[in-house]
Write a protein that binds this DNA or RNA. Structure first.
Lengths: 217, 217
DNA sequence: TCATTTTTTGACCAATTGGTCAACTATTTG
DNA sequence: CAAATAGTTGACCAATTGGTCAAAAAATGA
């Protein structure tokens, strides 16, 4: 994923795996885990079905690989956060990073959402072992801000859920938003407008003064 | 659903249809449309499979019936909204009604979400024909409030999406929220806390003063 | 070059699926 | 009570599915 793509052992492997993963992500989102077919994934990737089984032993393993890729994306998307940061700056950055991720990787957000909605049959461990720590660390920082009087008291957990839900709505419910807004697809302008609106509204809602509007990304 | 259940033609029909619809809703949420099986739905309803086909001709028809029931629920859940209303009162009520619906009917919210995430293959018409009008009417009211100087300017559409997403997160992502909060299930307290937090934060975010905290429901 | 490893592929299988049907039973109605 | 209607059910398809396999083709390395 981070290496040159010339002649080199494993190059064919890498390329095929990537196109299979991309195809699988789409099929799993549109059909669900059980509804997606190995044949459909193979067709979308432009390979015979047996070839998909050659690279990913079976369907469950392929699905896991797609989810792993999504979790990696998530971990790479966010800055660290520290009690020394200014609350308004840090929360503004958090909102904008989440908006950027949602618009850049809507299928990843959708598949993650479907997995959670279905009861997280394959991600229960991730939620309990990894994501909980991620949240707890941020909750601790927000609690420190409150204790220092730099942030109006609020439930940090609910604030994080608010930011998550409001931002990923534009990825997960893309079909609905586009239908209601009578659009075919999002524009670059939409990304900025959404980030601006959500940052301003949520920060104001927490009693913070949003940082001055500036062009991000 | 609103009639006595004594001896009466159609009573057996009503009861069986209801238990099939309830079973189907659960199966469709957990397995997706294609992943859910008529056999699994029949088992959950405690009936032989052929009986499910007797009441609902086929799988697509059963799925449609489940979605229809959800749309009916939605339409019954919300008060009308008028430009004469006080913005803070009306938005507070809107948030609380949505929170109540999310906690009362989480499976309905989840199935609707899965349908939208999958590209709304069965609800595209509903979004364009019914829901758009619902939203447009509320957008018009909010725009009037802004024009009258009773509400800080904001994009009404984005405000509605913010309220939708933040509230239904507790239904759709129930598995994740419970895992991160280290709970087994929601309490009655959670419903009130969430409603309170979201109403206060969002209304404040819009420049409104939230109505005094009072016990609702 | 040529032996070795990696990749490709169509044919094939057992299991599961949505759906049908005819026989049977229970309920309602005149 | 008897005819008609409504509901129940197991057995049965044809189609699709995830997965296997062995043989051929390509890529690699000495």
């Amino acid at each position: 994923m981070s290496e040159a793509l010339r002649y080199k052992p494993g190059r064919i492997r890498d390329e095929n795996q990537q196109s299979i993963l991309a195809a699988a992500e789409q099929e799993f989102v549109r059909q669900g885990y059980r509804g997606a077919t190995m044949q459909g994934i193979a067709d979308r990737a432009g390979l015979p079905k047996a070839n998909v089984h050659y690279y990913f032993k079976n369907k469950a393993n392929l699905y896991r690989s797609v989810l792993d890729r999504i979790v990696t994306l998530w971990n790479a998307a966010f800055s660290e956060i520290s009690a020394d940061d200014d609350p308004a700056i840090a929360l503004d950055r958090f909102v904008r990073e989440k908006v950027r991720l949602s618009f850049a990787q809507p299928r990843a957000s959708k598949l993650f959402a479907m997995e959670i909605i279905s009861g997280a049959p394959h991600l229960g461990d991730y939620l309990r072992d990894e994501l909980r720590g991620w949240v707890d660390a941020r909750v601790a920082v927000i609690d420190t801000w409150i204790a220092q009087g730099r942030l109006t008291p609020c439930e940090p957990r609910r604030l994080i859920y608010l930011i998550w839900s409001a931002t990923q709505h534009y990825a997960d419910f893309e079909t609905q938003v586009l239908a209601l807004d009578d659009k075919i697809e999002y524009s670059a302008q939409d990304v900025n407008d959404v980030a601006e609106f959500l940052s301003r509204t949520i920060l104001t809602g927490c009693g913070l003064t949003p940082p001055a509007d500036r062009a991000h990304g």
